[in-house]
Design a protein around this nucleic acid. Structure first.
Lengths: 234, 234
DNA sequence: TAGTGGTCTAGACCACAAA
DNA sequence: TTGTGGTCTAGACCACTAG
């Protein structure tokens, strides 16, 4: 029932971070210092730091120090990464333009209405840019009943998926990936040759069993790959 | 450039597992024993075990011992299902034809040689058919040193991925998905129009850290979608 | 009771980065 | 030169399990 000392230390560190006392980029006390502060050996202090490094909360830089790490946006597996983060993690500039916002009463035969199962649906169409080059056209449908303020958000500051997951966590996702030839609209907005295929990613996200969002993402083949790393052990 | 001792120990353990000397459920030597075997302190031996526990390769049972853990079967997440199973689960007939079998001494600049890191590589090219319609062209590269009998298998009975996982379990995978226009060879073998894009799936699988297989799978866009279901909760 | 993993200590030496 | 993390040692005590 007793808390190990290293766990106590790592909890204290976590508290300092979650209370914003130690913000992203902050250099935490050295292992020796932590050991002194908590009257522990360096090995024990180090083990506390180890835990948080493995959790992705801290980052070690040899010979320099240990720092509070930028939290990774979404979950680990075939992670639905935030496109804005992904672009900026490549050191590039992300921009977003909205093509249209609509409120729809879906016909029952459309794909998204079957999935969302809602009487009123918001639709938004956006283009994401990486360094002035369009990289993704995003069509997104959400249930108006669940996310009533969806269309009033400014998605150039907080991406649509960030906004949605701040309201309601994503617990499940269905993903479909296809290769398609672009429509005229896609050719125009993504500035394509007519012979460039596109990756079409259709993603239905659920929150505790309820469908939240139906999204269709188009990416020019020559500017985009989908990658994922799987750890099958465990 | 020197390998830390704990890494050396964990490599030795991994070797014992991947060579099937220590099978699933096997109780590995205790930490004290490992320390003696490798002339290390118990803390160092323990750190080696820690690594593999975190990787999900080993499992500790307090007061009892440490055991080789069951790897989760390949099917769980974003699984690329066995194409034969998938086709027959749709009630269709699967057939496979081999286009070529080769033994290669890879040049260092090829994608697969960088990944496989092997001096001799087997390559096999196959086409999978669903009800007399070609649905996938598979290019597969494996390390000759690791899988010496690869080319002698009859993959119409046991698929290549089944054979490989019977020899050595897949513990990790890197997957890349792209949309590409087909080459002439693809157009011919997959019986395509020249305007049909293809999904190109590149998959590198590892077994306990060692690369096992580099596979490139091409699917006609109009006959194939990649789907996957994710449970993000927990 | 003997053996296991879980925790902890008080040292030590190293390579490296920054001042 | 100083401080950092990276590694390593040779002990120690504990709670727990199994024979």
């Amino acid at each position: 029932m007793k808390l190990p000392k290293y766990r106590f230390i790592s909890n204290e560190i976590k508290d300092n971070i979650s209370s914003n006392l130690w913000q992203v980029g902050y250099q935490i006390p050295s292992e020796t210092e932590l050991a002194n502060q908590f009257s522990a050996s360096r090995m024990t202090a180090r083990k506390a730091v180890d835990e948080l490094v493995n959790l992705g909360v801290l980052e070690r830089v040899p010979s320099v120090g240990t720092f509070v790490k930028e939290p990774v946006s979404q979950s680990s597996l075939l992670e639905i990464r935030n496109i804005a983060d992904e672009i900026s993690s490549r050191g590039h500039v992300h921009k977003m333009t909205v093509l249209s916002k609509l409120t729809l009463i879906p016909k029952d035969n459309s794909d998204f209405s079957r999935s969302l199962n809602s009487s009123t649906v918001f639709k938004i169409v956006m283009v994401h840019w990486e360094n002035e080059l369009p990289i993704q056209l995003e069509e997104r449908y959400v249930s108006a009943a669940q996310i009533p303020l969806f269309l009033q958000q400014d998605f150039s500051k907080v991406t649509a998926s960030e906004y949605l997951s701040s309201i309601t966590p994503v617990t499940e996702a269905e993903i479909t990936v296809e290769a398609v030839m672009p429509t005229k609209i896609l050719i125009h907005h993504l500035q394509l040759d007519d012979n460039t295929p596109c990756l079409k990613v259709t993603r239905i996200t659920h929150s505790y069993g309820k469908p939240v969002c139906y999204a269709v993402l188009y990416h020019p083949a020559d500017r985009f790959k989908l990658t994922s790393h799987l750890d099958l052990a465990q």
